[in-house]
């Protein structure tokens, strides 16, 4: 795994070098001690908690209190993980996956259609209005609308279902997704659209056969961003579900700590287990993931 990570990390740097010569700070003759020390300090701040989480999750609860917290476990055990899995985490994992996939696919699909319409629009005031509505949605802290969302979900008889989490998640994802996708569709040369129209293709065809394949990287980026936000979401599951069977992972984590607060190794095993899928994704597609996270902000 380490090999994969280093490889993906060095490739982009090399590619950039080829494009624009050595980086701004790349050619300094003197080593920059301040930066060096600062970077090591930050590295420690990030890595110490992570190291501690991982080693402690393999420790036996009774020996945990007696041993040096930074020493690796003398007799590593999987008991903590067993306890976590027995506490229904498979189900919570499944719930999180259903919510994430169930929200991201429709969210990106409808956002893509809307973004296409907004970009291809010439003079329609309706679509310009839609665009400014979405732009406004970016500035509003949508968490503040949780009480009416709760009311709507109750009235729709969706309370305590996964669909209750999915629907508002789609709505919250739309403004930024439309914005980013529209920016990329705008880069598709107009002549391509025109010529496809000339050949008699309808709007629907142009949308899926031309715009969609040409902007696939942006679609991936936006999907990753939304998936991570929804996978990690806490407030919607907290407010809109109640039954333990409907819990998603972040909510399950918090509840699990409430139950087993004294059993630190088990709590940390639950953190490791729930974070593992994202870390695997990070190892496989680091560049995509990081690009997805800053989708729409700068660059």
């Amino acid at each position: 795994m380490g090999a994969i990570v280093t490889k993906t990390a060095s490739e982009p740097a090399a590619a950039r070098q080829a494009h624009r010569g050595p980086g701004p700070r790349g050619k300094s003759r003197r080593p920059n001690w301040l930066a060096g020390v600062g970077s090591v300090v930050w590295l420690a701040i990030v890595i110490i908690p992570i190291y501690w989480i991982v080693i402690t999750s393999f420790k036996v609860q009774s020996s945990y209190y007696a041993s040096n917290p930074f020493a690796p476990p003398t007799e590593p055990t999987l008991d903590n993980y067993r306890l976590v899995i027995e506490s229904d985490f498979i189900r919570y994992f499944f719930n999180s996956a259903v919510v994430s996939v169930g929200a991201v696919i429709p969210a990106v699909a409808v956002s893509f259609m809307a973004a296409f319409a907004i970009v291809r629009n010439r003079a329609g005031r309706f679509l310009r209005g839609v665009n400014s509505l979405f732009l406004m949605g970016l500035a509003i802290p949508l968490q503040a609308t949780i009480i009416p969302v709760y009311l709507i979900i109750i009235r729709l008889h969706l309370y305590d279902t996964l669909l209750a989490i999915i629907l508002p998640s789609i709505a919250f994802a739309i403004p930024l997704s439309v914005l980013v996708l529209a920016n990329f569709i705008r880069d598709v040369p107009k002549e391509l659209f025109e010529s496809m129209h000339m050949d008699g293709a309808g709007t629907w065809m142009v949308l899926w056969r031309l715009a969609f394949p040409l902007t696939r990287p942006a679609v991936v980026t936006v999907s990753i961003y939304n998936a991570l936000m929804i996978w990690n979401g806490f407030l919607l599951p907290l407010v809109l579900t109640q039954a333990p069977t409907q819990r998603t992972l972040p909510l399950a984590l918090a509840t699990f700590q409430g139950q087993y607060s004294v059993n630190v190794p088990a709590v940390l095993a639950s953190v490791v287990l729930t974070t593992l899928p994202i870390l695997v994704m990070y190892a496989v597609g680091r560049r995509q993931l990081l690009a997805g996270l800053t989708a729409g902000f700068g660059k």
Binding site: V110, S111, M113, A117, I152, A171, V178, T203
Partner: peptide, 15 residues
């Protein structure tokens, strides 16, 4: 075109 924006608009207005 306006119809393409309709689903996103509907969900966003609703929630």
């Amino acid at each position: 075109l306006p119809w393409l924006a309709a689903p996103a608009l509907l969900v966003f207005v609703g929630f």
